[in-house]
């Protein structure tokens, strides 16, 4: 069993001691804190998400595993010497309503290891909170992590808020495409797929950036409208798909939880002008539903009802008509 697999096994039990043992052994074999992060913790964490999607792991196991990895990262972080560069800190945080803080924490440790001072704000930072922190600490840059396509409209709002202070913004996380097109569409100064890239991106940034242009395209503007109406749209979608309160089946519960994200990813696809944001969300949903024994065609039905719900938004309707036409 590889160290990564062994690590995954112990964190699935929420076994802090076991996780530390794996890490100490790797360190004794000469692995640096950065090696441990890249080779064990990061891969384990992406497996955790997959295992939940396949219904192999419970939410509790997912939480326990994440808690252990965060604790291990904290201990590894303590081994990193204090920053060698006496520059303003880099703020690392997650966009509002993003609770998956581990990717951001990994990036923060990468930056620290590279000698950059870091101010880590953790999960779920609102635009107001972030801007206040920027005013207080005058950071060199802000790194914004986002893993859900549905959170992309919030990324846009936060990039806008931070850039208005002249502070450059780097974005990263699973919600972005590796070519950085979504990042560029949202006005980020740079995109970083991982911690190493984040270090390079921060070093290459200008000291100051200009505010974003105020008017996005008509499509992006519609994305913000869908975002503003998302609760109404989600309620209508819920009414069409899950009309009764009785959602006893696991797949219905998961579907119910996912509906706000589905509407959010329509908004995300529009603000980034990238339809694959929605496609990815539906593909993920199909995978999750299949592993929870949903009836065949459940995801197609979701797409059809979603199309019905957003029909008054021309660009959103186009996104879904292309999709349902392709499926049908």
């Amino acid at each position: 069993m590889s160290a990564a697999e062994e690590y995954l096994t112990v964190v699935s039990r929420g076994d802090r001691g076991g996780a530390l043992e794996v890490v100490r052994r790797l360190q004794a074999e000469g692995a640096s804190p950065l090696d441990v992060m890249n080779q064990v913790i990061a891969p384990a964490q992406s497996r955790v998400g997959e295992l939940w999607a396949r219904d192999t792991w419970s939410v509790a196991q997912e939480h326990a595993a994440t808690a252990v990895s965060e604790a291990v990262l904290g201990l590894l972080g303590a081994l990193v010497p204090p920053p060698s560069e006496h520059s303003a800190p880099v703020v690392v945080t997650c966009v509002e309503q993003e609770w998956h803080a581990l990717p951001a924490l990994l990036v923060a440790e990468h930056l620290r290891t590279a000698g950059l001072p870091v101010s880590y704000l953790g999960a779920n930072s609102s635009a107001e909170h972030l801007v206040r922190h920027v005013h207080e600490t005058a950071p060199r840059a802000v790194l914004l992590s986002c893993s859900l396509g549905a959170s992309l409209p919030r990324v846009r709002r936060q990039v806008e808020a931070v850039r208005a202070t002249g502070t450059p913004v780097v974005v990263g996380g699973a919600a972005f495409d590796t070519d950085g097109r979504r990042a560029a569409a949202l006005g980020a100064d740079a995109y970083a797929p991982d911690g190493a890239a984040a270090v390079l991106a921060v070093r290459a940034l200008p000291t100051a950036t200009l505010p974003m242009p105020t008017l996005p395209s008509a499509t992006a503007e519609e994305g913000l409208a869908v975002q503003a109406d998302r609760e109404e749209l989600t309620a209508r979608l819920r009414h069409r798909l899950l009309p009764t309160e009785e959602t006893a089946d696991p797949w219905q519960r998961v579907l119910g939880d996912h509906l706000p994200h589905l509407v959010g990813s329509v908004a995300g696809a529009l603000v980034t002008e990238d339809r694959t944001v929605l496609d990815e969300s539906l593909t993920w949903l199909a995978d999750v539903l299949e592993h929870r024994k949903a009836p065949p065609g459940a995801t197609e039905r979701v797409a059809v009802e979603l199309a019905g719900v957003v029909r008054e938004y021309p660009a959103a309707a186009r996104l879904l008509s292309v999709r349902t036409a392709a499926a049908g």
Binding site: H135, G166, T207, A208
Partner: peptide
């Protein structure tokens, strides 16, 4: 106008 930090405002 939005920059609340002297060095950054100067650079802009």
């Amino acid at each position: 106008g939005g920059s609340m930090q002297t060095e950054r405002a100067v650079d802009l």
